[in-house]
Design a protein around this nucleic acid. Structure first.
Length: 875
RNA sequence: GGAGGCUUAGCUCAGCCGGUAGAGCGCUUGCUUCACACGCAAGAGGUCACAGAUUCGAGUUCUGUAGUCUCCACCA
């Protein structure tokens, strides 16, 4: 079995080879198995032409950990991957490419040709992100990879649109929408990002038409005045009581406009008079509806002033603003300008200012859908982890506005509505219409717009499993189990999936939503392209190994919290991988048996490690099931490094290097057993290295990733042996500490005298004391030795140990140390005794807690006595 | 204007159902000990933001205060 492995673990070669092995052998496939329970995750589809960033890496790792864990637990685990067509993002990219390389716009090509280009683009770059996910170790069933614009998803989209339309839940209406003049499309509320921007508040004089005076309005967007059709004041405003009902004249334009009273206007803001631009402001639009104000659109789809406004026509909105302000000032209408910081809506894609524009768009009526979506979360059918995000969700859902779903783009699901030029009827159809369903005319034209990207993403959990067809997969794997995503996408996606699933499949799409935070840079800033502070996960994986990167992203993080990315931590995790590698190397170098399982007899140290492992199994499993992945991984880390490597391996060396063949085999088998079980626990977090090592160890079965997850076993709970081992370890630690303080080199061995009531325990530990505490010989006794001259002593709970190294001791330093230690222990004891003399504690605390505290106090007392004695001896 | 998070060792963060605190990095001191210097051993370092409350007992529950970050909201 002796196999020579390199001293330093090289992840690059191992990871690609191991991944290929898994994939070739179908390890990732999700099979319907009537004897198993399904466990399903659908992957949040990344943009098809995107690249993997650190957020994806974390998202991907979390899901992979869960799916690998469940797979090992014996579930029929299915992780469905896929990509999103990402309407605006992709279209913009292709248009940009077209512009730069060919100097063309999409209109030069025409819709059909342009779409061909986008598909080409998709085919060229669509596999990039998949390759990157594979690098991360994602164990998705790639054969089921889906795309939001593939045939099945498109069928689902069509079905949902028509069905909602038939139910009256989709309608077309002229409304104020968020419009991006740069992307030239409508946006949903969720796609608008508000930013505080410094601006100005311009005060403009509007003369009353009857010449009886004037009023002053305040605005942050003077260019919109061209579309003003009224002025509003608060009905309770005494200042303006008399002018309500009169009209005023719009400067520069000359339009006569009514002055109306509306509650919307605040009394104590600005001048108390608000200019009304119903076509370009959502509030004004509402006020306009109440008072029958005219709606005049003055900005076109590109944010340019429309025809009919003289020199302003043809100017873009910012140019027009400048010109209008200048003219107002020149003509004496400008009262004053004050600096004013306000919230400006910007496009989440291009970050240009959004322009509210009145426009005919398609909407989903949210109120009836929100009701059920709220119920399933409120009643716990779908739970958020951590729970606080359910509040974010319900708060949004309770106040949700109708969802604007039409986009003036070409890339996406074209709206399945045909308008009849003859009778004006709208044909809404699952199949492409060839004639008007009402009058039969062939003179029909399809709505040119496409649907919001999130419309198809909203159906993802069921469309990927075959819906609307009743497929066996849908039947078996749906509803899915856990959805993993970042908190930044709750509104965009999670909420919409929930109400869509409730409406169309009559059940919530998953029972748990695991929310994670953002990965930030080392200064706590968001990683972004514009800042150039992004760290490429692929680069990290390449340098330190995907395992190390995964472990970095998971360990020591609480769900839902942002984390900072430190390259140093990647390094530390790489070191951990190397540690496991070398521990395994050690085990294999010493391996002469291929017998599997535990030996018939166990030594004290074997029981110690097995007992600890057993507890680890239970705790890690519990943590995983509670989605406390960061805690789970930290526990495995500690066990491997501290318990297994620092102690257990050292403890086995006596047997491994001794002459007793039976003892050798015994140690080997426990070493292999514990290592194997530990590799299983670590596998979901560090899949590559664990598989690689497991393959090199004696094993049954083909792949570690398909092994059974360890389970707690009461028979492996050895409390006594654990305690005994700890007693010996305490003494080893004490001796090492004393020697370190005295700078005694390891080469200088010492004869030890150990006074202890547990002679048998220490007798069994002789080998460890020799090896790990540098003993040249050990005398065990239950009673104090007669002559302790020239000895330095130290005490532990179960023993007092003498070393003949007194000449090396700095008595004063030693006294100081003991005194300090004594003080600490006495303080601790005082606290304990106070507690134990408190009738409240004795009566109300659970019995086992009281007993434990009593035992602690006893031990402390004994220890204190020993320390005091020692101090006396030194005096 | 609402809602939520965070405030624990020099730095970055863990800490599940309440029983006087942990990790990684950094720092100090030793060590080429036959798996590993991407290492070993020993150490230093914290009144768990502040004030109350509940409790026998509170980083851990509740209330308030301060600082900080984020999300939501139509304030011209």
């Amino acid at each position: 079995m002796n196999r020579e492995l390199p001293k330093v673990y090289e992840p690059q070669e191992v990871e690609s080879r191991v991944y290929e092995m898994w994939e070739k052998n179908g390890c990732f496939k999700g099979h319907r198995d009537p004897d198993k329970k399904p466990f399903t995750i659908v992957m949040p589809p990344p943009n098809v032409t995107g690249q993997l960033h650190m957020g994806h890496a974390m998202d991907c790792t979390l899901q992979d950990i869960l799916i690998r864990f469940k797979r090992m637990q014996g579930y029929a685990a299915l992780w469905v991957p896929g990509t999103d067509h990402a309407g605006i993002a992709t279209q913009i990219k292709v248009e940009e490419d077209l512009r730069v390389n060919e100097g063309l716009t999409r209109h030069d090509l025409g819709r059909e040709k342009f779409l061909e280009r986008v598909w080409e683009w998709k085919n060229k770059y669509g596999s990039r992100i998949v390759a990157q996910q594979k690098k991360m170790g994602a164990s998705c069933d790639w054969d089921r990879a889906r795309f939001t614009m593939d045939e099945g998803c498109s069928k689902a989209v069509r079905e949902v649109f028509v069905s909602l339309y038939d139910k009256g839940l989709i309608y077309k209406g002229s409304r104020i929408v968020n419009w991006c003049p740069h992307c030239v499309t409508a946006l949903s509320d969720a796609e608008v990002e508000y930013q505080d921007k410094p601006g100005h508040l311009w005060h403009i004089r509007y003369p009353l038409t009857d010449g009886s005076g004037e009023l002053v309005v305040a605005t942050t967007r003077p260019e919109t005045m061209l579309g003003d059709t009224g002025v509003a004041v608060n009905p309770a405003d005494e200042r303006y009581k008399d002018i309500v009902g009169k009209t005023c004249t719009l400067p520069l334009v000359g339009r006569e406009m009514p002055i109306v009273a509306d509650e919307y206007v605040e009394l104590d803001f600005g001048t108390g008079c608000v200019k009304m631009t119903p076509a370009h402001d959502p509030n004004d639009f509402e006020v306009g509806l109440r008072h029958n104000l005219e709606t005049i659109r003055v900005l076109d789809d590109h944010g340019v002033v429309v025809e009919g406004y003289g020199k302003y026509s043809g100017m873009d909105r910012y140019e027009a603003r400048k010109a209008i302000v200048a003219d107002l000032e020149e003509q004496g209408y400008l009262v004053k300008v004050e600096p004013y910081s306000h919230n400006v809506g910007t496009c989440y894609r291009c970050h240009n200012d959004v322009e509210p524009i009145i426009s005919a768009q398609w909407f989903v009526k949210m109120e009836p859908l929100a009701k059920e979506a709220l119920r399933v979360v409120n009643e716990g059918e779908t739970k958020f982890v951590p729970d606080r995000f359910s509040k974010t969700y319900t708060n949004w859902m309770e106040n949700v506005h109708d969802w604007c779903i039409s986009r003036q783009l070409w890339w996406g699901h074209q709206i399945p509505v045909w308008y009849c030029a003859d009778c004006g009827h709208m044909t809404v159809s699952r199949q492409d219409a060839t004639r008007c369903e009402k009058c039969g005319s062939k003179n029909i034209e399809r709505d040119p717009d496409v649907l919001d990207t999130w419309f198809s993403s909203a159906l993802w959990p069921f469309s990927t499993l075959g819906w609307p067809d009743k497929t066996p997969d849908l039947d078996y794997f749906y509803p899915t189990d856990v959805l993993v995503t970042g908190y930044d996408i709750i509104f965009f996606w999670v909420a919409r999936m929930i109400f869509s699933a409730c409406e169309h499949t009559k059940q919530p799409p998953f029972h748990t939503v695991l929310i994670h935070g953002l990965v930030r840079d080392d200064k706590g800033r968001k990683m972004s392209k514009s800042l150039g502070n992004g760290i490429d996960p692929l680069e990290m994986a390449d340098k330190y190994g995907a395992d190390a990167l995964r472990f970095n992203l998971i360990t020591g993080n609480a769900p839902g919290n942002d984390m900072r990315f430190y390259v140093e931590k990647c390094e530390a995790m790489r070191n951990f991988a190397n540690k496991i590698w070398n521990a395994s190397r050690f085990v294999m170098m010493n391996l002469t048996t291929d017998k599997l399982g535990l030996p018939e007899t166990l030594e004290q140290e074997d029981k110690w490690i097995l007992s600890k492992l057993n507890r680890l199994v239970k705790e890690v499993t519990d943590n995983m099931e509670a989605y406390e992945l960061g805690v789970a991984s930290a526990k495995v880390y500690d066990f491997i490094w501290s318990d297994y490597c620092d102690w257990y391996i050292e403890l086995t060396k006596a047997r491994l290097q001794g002459d007793d063949e039976h003892a050798k085999e015994q140690a080997q088998r426990v070493l292999v057993y514990v290592l194997t079980e530990t590799l299983k626990l670590l596998h979901p977090f560090m899949p590559f290295i664990t598989e690689e090592i497991w393959q090199a160890l004696p094993h049954e079965g083909d792949f570690l990733m398909l092994q059974k997850w360890p389970e707690y076993d009461e028979a492996l709970n050895f409390q006594e042996a654990e305690a005994a081992m700890e007693s010996v370890m305490d003494v080893i630690r004490a001796i090492r500490a004393r020697r370190a303080e005295m700078n005694v080199p390891p080469s200088k061995k010492a004869e030890l005298t150990i006074v202890t009531p547990k002679v048998a325990v220490f007798d069994a530990g002789r080998g460890f004391l020799t090896r790990l505490a540098y003993a040249s010989g050990i005398s065990l006794t239950e009673t104090e030795p007669a002559d302790t001259a020239g000895m330095v002593a130290d005490v532990t709970h179960d023993a007092k140990v003498y070393m003949p190294l007194a000449e090396l001791v700095d008595i004063e330093k030693e006294k100081a140390r003991l005194t300090k230690d004594l003080g600490k222990k006495q303080g601790e004891l005082k606290g304990l005794e106070g507690k134990l003399s408190n009738p409240g504690f004795l009566n109300k605390a659970p019995a086992d807690v009281v007993a434990a505290e009593q035992e602690r106090a006893e031990k402390l007392k004994a220890l204190i006595a020993k320390i005091e004695e020692q101090l006396k001896a030194m005096a």
